[in-house]
Amino acid sequence: MAAGGDHGSPDSYRSPLASRYASPEMCFVFSDRYKFRTWRQLWLWLAEAEQTLGLPITDEQIQEMKSNLENIDFKMAAEEEKRLRHDVMAHVHTFGHCCPKAAGIIHLGATSCYVGDNTDLIILRNALDLLLPKLARVISRLADFAKERASLPTLGFTHFQPAQLTTVGKRCCLWIQDLCMDLQNLKRVRDDLRFRGVKGTTGTQASFLQLFEGDDHKVEQLDKMVTEKAGFKRAFIITGQTYTRKVDIEVLSVLASLGASVHKICTDIRLLANLKEMEEPFEKQQIGSSAMPYKRNPMRSERCCSLARHLMTLVMDPLQTASVQWFERTLDDSANRRICLAEAFLTADTILNTLQNISEGLVVYPKVIERRIRQELPFMATENIIMAMVKAGGSRQDCHEKIRVLSQQAASVVKQEGGDNDLIERIQVDAYFSPIHSQLDHLLDPSSFTGRASQQVQRFLEEEVYPLLKPYESVMKVKAELCL
Rank of each mutant, 00 (worst) to 15 (best):
A127I: 02
Q416R: 09
A342C: 12
M299R: 01
T347L: 14
S207I: 07
R33L: 10
L135K: 07
A103M: 11
F449W: 05
A322T: 14
T227A: 14
D422S: 14
M278K: 01
V247D: 07
T38Q: 06
E228M: 12
A322E: 10
Q161A: 04
V254P: 09
V251E: 03
Q61P: 03
D445R: 11
Q221S: 10
H97W: 12
A335L: 03
H7D: 08
S23D: 13
A77M: 15
E370C: 07
K134A: 10
Q409S: 08
L482S: 09
G5V: 08
L222M: 07
H310Y: 07
T244M: 05
I105A: 13
V475H: 13
K75C: 11
M292K: 03
Q51G: 07
F145E: 10
W175R: 00
K284H: 09
T450C: 12
T330A: 11
C172F: 04
M387W: 05
R371I: 00
E343W: 03
L423F: 14
V368I: 03
L440P: 06
V465S: 02
L423N: 04
W43K: 00
C98S: 11
K479G: 15
L53H: 04
I369L: 10
D441L: 11
Q177N: 15
E279A: 08
I249G: 06
D223M: 06
F282K: 07
K229H: 07
C266P: 05
I139D: 03
K402P: 04
G231L: 06
G54V: 00
E60R: 10
K402I: 07
G231V: 05
S289F: 01
V363W: 05
F74R: 11
L311D: 01
T244E: 00
L271H: 09
Q164D: 01
Q285D: 12
S67L: 12
I386W: 03
P16Q: 15
N274A: 13
T239F: 03
V364Y: 02
P467H: 05
Q439D: 15
R234S: 13
F433W: 05
H91P: 04
Q161M: 03
K101I: 12
I105R: 13
Q439G: 10
Q221G: 12
S67V: 12
Q428L: 15
G240N: 15
N336D: 07
T267M: 15
D178Q: 07
C266M: 14
K229C: 10
L258K: 06
P281V: 12
E462M: 15
V429R: 13
Q161H: 04
Y466T: 13
K284M: 12
V315H: 09
G418D: 02
E328I: 04
E283P: 01
R338V: 01
L319I: 11
E481I: 08
D248Q: 01
Y466K: 14
L355S: 07
Q285K: 13
E277Y: 05
E279L: 05
S454W: 09
L84F: 07
P153N: 04
V226Q: 02
P162R: 03
Q408N: 14
I358G: 05
V324E: 06
G54A: 13
G240D: 02
R372D: 02
R14F: 15
M316I: 11
P133C: 09
A103K: 14
Q356M: 12
D398Q: 15
P471D: 13
M299N: 08
G96Y: 05
F282G: 11
A3Y: 15
K75H: 10
Q439I: 10
F36N: 13
P298D: 03
S454E: 14
Q428I: 09
I358A: 15
E148D: 12
D215Y: 15
A431E: 13
S434R: 11
K187W: 09
L275T: 07
V168H: 05
F74P: 09
F95D: 00
E279I: 02
Q210D: 15
A78E: 12
A273G: 13
E81M: 00
Q63C: 11
M312D: 02
I72A: 07
D6H: 00
A322P: 03
N126H: 14
L174M: 14
L142M: 12
T94S: 11
E473R: 15
V262Q: 05
R459E: 10
M76A: 12
R149H: 09
M380P: 00
A163E: 04
C399S: 14
D182Y: 03
I106M: 07
